[in-house]
Every structure is written in C-alpha cells, then in structure tokens.
Amino acid sequence: MTNKLKILRAEHNLTQEDLAEKIGVTRQTIFAIEKNKYSPTLELAFKLSKLFKQPIESIFNYS
C-alpha cells in the first residue's frame, strides 16, 4: 500500500509533528506511514481523509 501523505502534508504546510498532533498520534507514526512501513487503521485513515478533505482512496493506493 502506498500513499501521498507526504505530498498532502507539504501542500498544507504541515510538519510531521503538526500533523501528528492534529490527528492524535505520535510523529513516528506519521513518518512510518509516509515511508510505507506502517498501514494505518481505518479510523486513522478516515481522520486523515477528513483533515485533508479528500477521499481515502485518493490518499491511499492499494495495489
């Protein structure tokens, strides 16, 4: 599973720490998601979707 979290974060001018604080996770989790080392739960995916106002499938790509 890949994602464009890093791009979205850059577009919204957010640091990993800012984004982590907004969705209530640690900075390491954001780093791990961006590096495709960790697949978030559905709940976290929805939080990111809501924050960036984009559907989940446009943030995450399952191939």
Binding site: A20, E21, G24, V25, T26, T29, Y38
Partner: peptide, 9 residues
C-alpha cells in the same frame, strides 16, 4: 499533553 502511545505503538 503530548501523545505518548497510539495504534502503531
């Protein structure tokens, strides 16, 4: 106040 644990941890 900081998040110390989450779903990944």
């Amino acid at each position: 106040k900081a998040v110390l644990s989450d779903e990944r941890t």
